[in-house]
């Protein structure tokens, strides 16, 4: 496996009394993005960061910088790096499976980073057994170990011919969804509105492929930079029109392409300005446009 590069971690996975040597490889990479530099507006020069004593304003050497925990206003407990390190248990390099969990039961909100978990030659058999057993029972395994000097909980799940170990965020690192959504009123949608929305979903059903998505931001930014260099400013986009509660049903009907669409406002007012004589012709055009847009929608959806 020359292409795979070096393992981030080597150790063991242990389930029950079975122990197998394994390795972890980062499953993801971060692609490049446009970076800005912080500059001094006054001089146009770049800036650099400096660490200074908040009271004296003098630079503080790296070795004089220590971690402090704030007790109350300006009172700190100093913790030396060794003390912080001592809080992390010694690593025995073993992912100890604590429980198996039904895949449907897992709360994805805790997911942090995925790693490919691969077997060592010596443990290939035990690895295959765990993988196939979990696959058959549709479960994932919860395990804990010290990874990269931090205690981590990981979720191990089958993925193609292998296993993926995803590090999980701790409970205190995840906001409660219930709390976050508590202000939302309890509205249950039924009847025609729900049916229309389900119909729209049907029209737009498809599959996901990550390769279809590319970052268009860079191009948009380049456009912005160019406009600025040319001394132009890009027009601000108007915010989209929000569907008012009394227009919602009609908007859904139009989206579903079920009823002949009503005329968009702009065109309606133009037609009105042109006078009454053309009213009949405009009505015919209206019907035509509606039919066209419904067809276009169907095309787009397929």
């Amino acid at each position: 496996m020359a292409v795979a590069g070096r393992a981030q971690w080597k150790g063991y996975i242990r389930f029950g009394e079975v122990t197998a040597p394994v390795a972890l490889y980062t499953a993801t990479s971060t692609s490049e993005r446009i970076s800005f530099h912080t500059v001094n507006r006054e001089t146009g020069n770049r800036v650099r960061r400096e660490f200074v004593d908040s009271a004296t304003g003098k630079p503080v050497e790296k070795e004089d910088q220590v971690k402090g925990y704030e007790l109350d206003n300006d009172r700190y407990v100093v913790l030396e790096p060794e003390e912080v390190a001592a809080a992390v248990p010694e690593s025995d390099k073993t992912l100890r499976v604590q429980a198996f969990i039904t895949c449907d039961d897992i709360d994805k909100i805790y997911f942090d980073r995925p790693y490919y978990l691969t077997p060592d030659k010596m443990g290939a058999e035990a690895y295959a057994l765990l993988r196939d057993g979990m696959h058959k029972k549709k479960v994932a395994a919860i395990a804990q170990t010290v990874l990269f000097r931090r205690m981590r909980t990981v979720l191990v799940r089958t993925h193609e011919k292998g296993l993926i170990a995803t590090t999980l965020n701790f409970d205190y690192e995840v906001r409660s969804a219930k709390e976050a959504f508590k202000e939302i009123p309890d509205i249950k949608i039924k009847g025609e509105m729900l049916d229309l929305a389900k119909h729209i979903i049907g029209i737009k059903k498809g599959t996901f492929s990550a390769d279809e998505f590319d970052d268009r931001y860079e191009a948009a930014l380049a456009e912005l930079v160019k406009a600025k260099m040319d001394g132009k400013t890009l027009p601000k986009r108007a915010p989209p029109k929000v569907s008012k509660p009394n227009e919602l049903l009609e908007a859904l009907r139009q989206s579903a392409g079920i009823k002949a669409a009503a005329e968009p406002k702009r065109r309606a007012s133009k037609a009105a300005a042109k006078g009454r004589s053309k009213a009949t012709r405009s009505a015919a055009a209206k019907a035509k446009t509606a039919a066209k847009s419904a067809a276009a929608q169907r095309r787009r959806a397929s």
Partner: peptide, 24 residues
């Protein structure tokens, strides 16, 4: 909710803050 630490100056026990200086 994480136990958060601040950086202190060991010599003075004051907080260490970062600031930007002009590179030139």
């Amino acid at each position: 909710e994480k136990v958060r630490f601040h950086t202190l100056n060991r010599k003075t026990n004051n907080r260490v803050v970062s600031r930007y200086v002009d590179a030139e």
